[in-house]
């Protein structure tokens, strides 16, 4: 496993001795990979990134980033990484250019290269025309892009993107995706991305770690994860479908019922749909779709991503504090 750029072993973070924000997380990220953490808010994604970025010490377990231990060699780790936080952390009182200059000085870039690097970074995120405006005049998307420019300035091997499109409109989100793809293609950077948007993980990540309540529940490529759901999903709304008839079909794997709605998991639905409908009898509506990462999430956790967004972590914190 020496080719992995990030490697964690049973990484655990416990707050107040009993809230397990991250539990026994063991992952290995290869060079040049876009690795996605997908999970609801409070699943432990940001806590993991903070540990990998040396902002939080793990409670137990270990993590190596670019070959350096996050606890024993924090400054080596910090030199190897760039990070784009969930909340933009650029200085509003400074211009875009000044923010980058500050970063260049902090990362001790050679004086002769500072200007050209800043130009290059601003160019990449298309902010060159606004370089001398104060950041407080930037839109949300522009701020996020400036963060990326700053994260890239010192050419880190690894870039952490914590919810890079949170709060962006659909167009802003797509622009951001384009940048991220360009980064791995042109700069061959390794990217660790957290998101609670399944489309984002699906379209960007080479591999996904589905994380829920601090634990990793599945790790694979988006395609394989979806394939493991076990076929396409046919949703039928009908009063009295002949379920027994459908069960006899070889392509049908699973039937779930909720009120008058039946979700049938089956292989190659496009080819077998005619057959299915013939047997089922009169239906009000039919919908056929390929599984999404949401279905993957349901399969592993028993509930949908949106459902899981109920702030479980906050509830747990509340419960434990109430007990005191």
């Amino acid at each position: 496993m020496s080719s992995s750029v990030i490697e964690t072993k049973k990484l655990t973070k416990t707050f107040n001795g009993r809230i397990h924000a991250v539990q026994d997380l063991s992952i290995s990220i290869e060079e040049g990979e876009i690795y996605g953490f997908l999970g609801p808010n409070g699943a432990g994604k940001t806590t993991t990134i903070k540990m990998l970025a040396t902002l939080l010490d793990p409670t137990s377990g270990s993590a190596r980033v670019n070959g350096f231990d996050v606890v024993k060699q924090p400054s080596k780790v910090r030199e190897s990484i760039g990070i784009v936080f969930q909340e933009p952390s650029s200085d509003e009182l400074l211009t875009g250019y000044e923010n980058l200059r500050l970063s260049a000085l902090m990362y001790d870039l050679p004086a002769s290269e500072i200007e050209s690097r800043i130009d290059g970074s601003l160019e990449l995120v298309e902010l060159n025309d606004r370089r001398n405006d104060l950041v407080k005049t930037y839109s949300g998307g522009m701020r996020r892009r400036l963060e990326i420019a700053r994260g890239l300035l010192h050419r880190p091997r690894i870039l952490f993107l914590d919810e890079p499109t949170l709060g962006l409109d659909p167009r802003g989100r797509e622009t951001m995706w384009r940048y991220v793809e360009r980064l791995t293609e042109e700069l061959r950077m390794t990217i660790l991305l957290t998101t609670h948007y399944m489309e984002e993980a699906d379209s960007l990540a080479d591999r996904i770690c589905i994380i829920d309540k601090g634990k990793s529940v599945a790790i694979d490529t988006p395609a394989r994860l979806k394939r493991k759901v076990g076929g396409d999903l046919v949703t039928i709304v009908a009063d009295s479908p002949r379920i027994a008839e459908i069960r006899r079909l070889k392509s049908v794997r699973k039937i779930e019922q909720k009120d008058g709605t039946f979700v049938i998991t089956m292989d190659n639905a496009a080819a077998h749909l005619q057959d299915l409908l013939k047997r089922v009898g009169k239906v009000d509506s039919v919908e056929v779709r390929s599984p999404t990462l949401d279905d993957v999430f349901i399969k592993h956790t028993g509930r949908g991503l949106e459902q899981a967004e109920g702030g479980w972590f906050e509830k747990m914190v509340q419960n434990t504090t109430n007990k005191e």
């Binding site: 040396t54 902002l55 910090r78 990484i81 936080f85 952390s89 509003e92 902090m106 990362y107």
Partner: peptide
């Protein structure tokens, strides 16, 4: 409060 410090603390500066 405004998250500015994080970006400084995550830099290699001691």
């Amino acid at each position: 409060r405004i998250d500015l410090l994080k970006s400084i603390l995550v830099s290699p500066l001691s």
